[in-house]
Amino acid sequence: MAISTSTATANLNKITPRFDGIVVIVGAFGSGKTEVAVNLAALSREAGSEVWIADLDLVNPYFRTREARVPLTRMGIGVVLPPEIYLHADLPILTPLVAGAIRRTEGLVILDVGGNDVGATVLASLADAFHASSLEKRPFHVLFVMNPFRPFTGTLSGCMKMRKSIERASKLAITGIIGNANLMEETRAEDIEEGYRFVRAFSEKSRLPLEMITIPYPLLKQTDITHFSCPVLSIQRQLVPPWKKPAGFHFDRKSDS
């Protein structure tokens, strides 16, 4: 886990996503919410924010935030999980610590929610905590992660349908989009461009702001990021099958070259 303490280049700084308050990460099954959530948490922590991340994935049995808890905790990020003995239980456990995290009055709180409307349903039960947070005038974002290379969200109408079903189930309005176009290790630069065009089109159609797009870390250096209209989050894969090594978190572009 090489964690660099030096700052990012000035160029990268301008396009680095910055969030405060509550960030709720929703999206279709397998759209990459967890990788986005843990990478955003790490980046924000690296930039000096107090960060908490809550694993609200009650529907997926494997590849959840809880599997990245060690590197996250090591960075000083608060990881809110079900009790240890239930970590691998096939049960929808929502720890009261989540509501506690939402009521925090400072720092960044990221909620990594399960996929589709089914996964987003849990948010409706946190309405009281969200209300308390709004009374504190905490910034509140509900960000919709989109990967057009996934089934059911490869068309604008498919994404619109997904957006509506998640909003209905969560009883929350989505406030912005995260473009997460990727084919994991097989992602090519042209896939990033194609994905960017797609989420821009969705942004126009839905009138939701494009808050950021993601680029796999290995592709970052070869991509001209200056023409993107939004910040870029580089994704360093943490949730990998056992024959691969998690990427760890690296933040200094220069030190890696």
Binding site: F29, G30, N147, F149, R150, P151, N182, L183, E186
Partner: peptide, 14 residues
């Protein structure tokens, strides 16, 4: 072209 799928989804589609 390529799509990104969970094994379970891919089995259904196959």
């Amino acid at each position: 072209s390529k799509v990104l799928m969970k094994g379970n989804e891919a089995i259904g589609e196959a």
